[in-house]
Design a protein around this nucleic acid. Structure first.
Lengths: 226, 226
DNA sequence: CGGGTCGTTGATACGCATCAATACATGTGG
DNA sequence: CCACATGTATTGATGCGTATCAACGACCCG
């Protein structure tokens, strides 16, 4: 039980010394959320960021009409809510617990003074933000330069370990979630799936089978980069 | 002339000591580009980031077919290419000089050792990245949750100093550029402009006149936040 | 003044959302 | 274990939103 709460289990903190970690731990508060619960809401004042100790969190944006979209999914060991906390601005997005979740919530004012005391902390934080920036940039590229079918192809390729030949990989998210991530309706995703059969992409219940990754890469019109 | 090259003119470095600044200066190289020139290209290896000392830079993404889109515009005093440099990954985007441009290009490996020597530097860098993250997140929200007309309305509101009543503000970018930023064609932008007349938005040559900002805010369906 | 770019407007076609109906899977209680 | 209810994925019919192609007007610059 305590093991789950130990922030040394995190990607983020792997490069940080044990001493700094325990200090960081003392600056924050352990929080628990159950599936479906909101961790913070769009437009709330952003004072704290979170280190995700356990579970999965969806970062979503909502329209006033109620329509929602998934911006990102955060996995164990990563940070979220960081940009708002650093700039002391309202959150642009909501964070929702996809599973039961444990986080360490740290007010950025506390972390700030730590940065001068423990400079080793700054690099991991920069890396986290840099990674987020890349994920978001990639998504904008896709939304602006690709059609729905191409985004689906791109998404499948991004799941694949290899970039050539054939491969099979698991779809760990339900179709509804994939559609929201890709900025389309579930119905459109279904049709894209049907259309991609012609390109040698076979969807099964919880996995995809791709005959020729190179063919798919050339189809989707945009390099697949991490 | 030398004044233009002095990085103390930068937003970024306003909060950094003179000593650190000159050190930073010595770690990098002053580079000059003329209008239209590429500063770096999508998929190039990202080793350096740039501090923009003078001019304006467009961050763009290209499809293999040649179609391009504008992801962001960088102004004097801000950083770009940071995420790739931090992670030693290929650039996801191209940087193009919109005007004649002067930058200080700094290999991140150099900056990295500086971060431990001069911890005061980490906070401004985190702020830069946090700001970028917000800009990108905002853009994704808009692309996924708003129609073209609404994005145009949102864009105009983001230019305005006040959030209520009427206002006039300058359009410093040509329409073609605005369209690319908003993820639409110039033709569609034209039609949106025409449609927004009904909402009390009057476009002139290089400015917009809005009768009722509150009305426009409720129209665009998404809060306008920095 | 004439050639070029830029912005607008119109006609058309395509992509995608929407609404509706059906099939399928999962889970629940009789 | 089956019957039924619930949620999830597919398929079809239709309409809206936006790209595309083409023509035209307005401005800028040589």
């Amino acid at each position: 039980m305590l093991a789950a709460l130990n922030i040394q289990n995190c990607d983020f903190s792997r490069e940080v010394s044990a001493e700094t970690l325990s200090r960081l731990n003392s600056l924050g508060t352990i929080k628990r959320y159950s599936t479906g619960e909101n961790i913070f809401n769009q437009y709330d004042d952003g004072t704290s960021f979170h280190i995700l100790l356990d579970g999965i969190v969806s970062i979503t944006a909502l329209r006033e009409s109620g329509q929602s979209t998934i911006i990102d999914t955060v996995h164990k060991g990563h940070l979220f809510g960081l940009n708002s906390a650093i700039l002391h601005r309202p959150y642009l997005v909501s964070a929702v617990a996809d599973t039961d979740v444990v986080t360490l919530a740290i007010p950025f004012t506390n972390a700030q003074q730590m940065l001068t005391e423990h400079p080793e902390l700054s690099l991991p934080m920069l890396r986290e933000l840099a990674t987020q920036t890349r994920i978001l940039t990639n998504q904008i590229r896709q939304l602006k330069l690709q059609k729905g079918n191409e985004r689906v192809a791109h998404y499948i390729l991004s799941l694949s370990p290899s970039m050539t030949g054939s491969f099979v990989c698991d779809l760990n998210e339900p179709r509804r979630v994939i559609a929201q991530r890709l900025g389309m309706t579930p119905e459109s995703l279904s049709r894209s799936i049907a259309a991609l059969k012609a390109k040698g992409v076979i969807f099964e219940r919880t996995s995809v089978r791709v005959k020729d990754a190179a063919l798919l890469r050339s189809y989707c019109g945009l390099e697949v980069i991490q």
